[in-house]
Design a protein around this nucleic acid. Structure first.
Length: 249
DNA sequence: GGTTATGTTATTTC
DNA sequence: AGAAATAACATAAC
């Protein structure tokens, strides 16, 4: 379920609950002190990459939806409840996710300049970090959450397609302006994706990811598990350029 | 029933 | 010791 934009969307959905008091808290999440939560006020909601934080009077809950995570606002899902919050005027339920308790201030735990959707995001820093591992495949590098927090497999594939970069390109061989465009594309795409969520145009906006045919060349999109992490890559051999080191003889 | 998939982390292996 | 491979977790769809 999660890529950065979906977490920001969830934040927007949950923001009306800010200022409300927890009436009841339950679930099976081992890390959550349900009793302690009762009576606390929801004071803030923030996101970092694919994580979302619910700040209460004197603790914070971090939620990561991982692969199958689901949530329901003022509703339920037919599966085991991980964390259920009943507030003054409604409920938020989380399923199949990771819930963790944080007691330290978030600023001490997170570097917001690596979150692609945060105003503090620093593209220059991202470029530097990417070039730090020049031998990596770009398809692996873009998924590195310590460089581009929030980028998932969809945004990765789509950014590569839009900037016409082949996923098996070596980071170190990609010219700086191209790599920069790629980083900027990840950011732009994330905000586009958020807009689609807001507008409810859930319909597939992807051009390459999960698609069968290249919209530019009208030839089949290749789908292969590429790179160290073996995540599915969707790409067009014809319009996405492969940047590789010159052969050494 | 097997495979696959918007993800990360813990454990095992080399 | 440390990198790399594998397992683990949870869920629905094809």
């Amino acid at each position: 379920m999660p890529e950065g934009p979906q977490m920001v969307f969830l934040k927007e959905q949950a923001e009306p609950f800010i200022g409300q008091v927890v009436v009841q808290a339950e679930g099976r999440a081992g890390d959550i002190p349900f009793d302690e939560l009762k009576g606390q006020t929801l004071t803030s909601i923030s996101t970092f990459g694919k994580e979302i934080f619910f700040g209460f009077t004197d603790l914070t809950i971090r939620i990561h939806l991982r692969f199958f995570g689901k949530y329901a606002i003022n509703g339920t899902a037919n599966r085991e409840l991980e964390l259920g919050l009943e507030l003054d005027e409604g409920t938020i339920n989380f399923y199949a996710c990771e819930c963790r308790l944080l007691r330290e201030p978030l600023e001490e735990l997170y570097d917001w300049s690596t979150d692609i959707m945060n105003p503090a995001f620093d593209p220059d820093q991202a470029l530097r970090k990417l070039y730090n591992k020049p031998d990596r495949l770009i398809c692996d590098a873009l998924l590195d959450q310590s460089i581009l927090a929030g980028v998932g497999n969809g945004i990765k594939n789509e950014a590569l397609f839009r900037q016409r970069v082949h996923p098996e390109s070596r980071v170190g061989e990609i010219p700086e302006p191209v790599l920069r465009s790629l980083v900027e594309e990840c950011v732009q795409l994330s905000f586009d994706y958020l807009d689609w969520k807001r507008e409810g145009t859930t319909a597939d906006q992807w051009q390459a990811y999960m698609r069968k045919q290249c919209p530019r060349d009208h030839i089949p999109i290749r789908k292969e598990k590429v790179g160290k992490d073996g995540r599915p890559c969707y790409f067009c051999d014809k319009c996405q350029r492969l940047y590789l080191p010159d052969a050494i003889w």
